[in-house]
């Protein structure tokens, strides 16, 4: 089990890249998606809702296969990029729902108060609503990031050499499975536990700062 660890650690960097890459894509793209989801413009709202429901309703592994093998006929994406894009698209849907909950949790009087002062919609959103909503959106988003770290293991099916892929390789070379996969589990834990702790810290910090 111990001997397997250095080989597994070679996959750690890749796992971290997929996790952070797809989370960043999601964190960024979820902003316009959440706004579209809350828009007064009906087609925009329907489109956003449809995206969120469809993407969340299908397992991430399926998106990965579609993106890599399905589109492989027309564009060849490097496996790592395909993995980041597929999980990024899924993160976008989940995080958009967290953002929406955060935005909606802010009292309606805040929009009115800002409107009566003559603040523009953009100023109202970015300077009044978003800083308050983030306290609500952050905890579920942080747990989602930890979940994403584990979900990133599905990238091994398209040949991205992450932790899971390294473990599979060792196993296929004839090594006994149990210690190898246990060791892989430990490597995941080494990253996910500190991430969870950090998420909780960030949450407490933001809560005391914004005092919602």
């Amino acid at each position: 089990m111990i001997e397997a660890i250095p080989f597994l650690l070679q996959g750690l960097g890749t796992t971290v890249i997929i996790t952070f890459g797809s989370f960043l894509i999601g964190a960024f793209c979820a902003v316009p998606l959440a706004l579209a989801r809350l828009s007064d413009i009906v087609p925009l709202r329907l489109l956003a809702t449809a995206y969120i429901e469809v993407v969340r309703g299908i397992p991430p592994i399926a998106w990965m296969l579609v993106l890599f093998y399905g589109l492989g006929r027309y564009v060849t994406l490097p496996p790592l990029l395909a993995a980041c894009l597929a999980l990024g698209a899924v993160s976008t849907a989940y995080l958009a729902e967290n953002y929406r909950a955060g935005i909606q949790a802010v009292a309606g009087g805040q929009w009115e108060g800002a409107g009566a002062l003559g603040l523009s919609k953009g100023d109202t959103f970015w300077r009044v609503i978003a800083p308050q909503g983030i306290g609500v959106a952050l905890p579920p988003s942080a747990s989602y990031a930890v979940g994403l770290l584990k979900d990133s293991a599905v990238a091994s099916v398209i040949g991205v050499s992450d932790i899971a892929f390294q473990a599979l390789t060792l196993n296929q070379q004839g090594n006994p499975g149990l210690p190898i996969f246990l060791a892989a589990g430990v490597v995941y834990l080494v990253v996910s536990v500190p991430m969870a702790v950090l998420a909780r810290k960030a949450d407490t910090f933001i809560r005391t700062r914004s005092a919602v």
Binding site: A107, D123, P131, R209, A211
Partner: peptide, 27 residues
């Protein structure tokens, strides 16, 4: 036209001073 509400509608995430200053800066 300025307005004062029953529920105050102050911005809870910034200081009292910033509450009064921010709209002047933006508007």
């Amino acid at each position: 036209v300025g307005m004062v509400f029953q529920s105050f509608n102050l911005f809870p995430h910034i200081s009292v001073l910033r509450n009064v200053a921010l709209p002047q800066e933006r508007v």
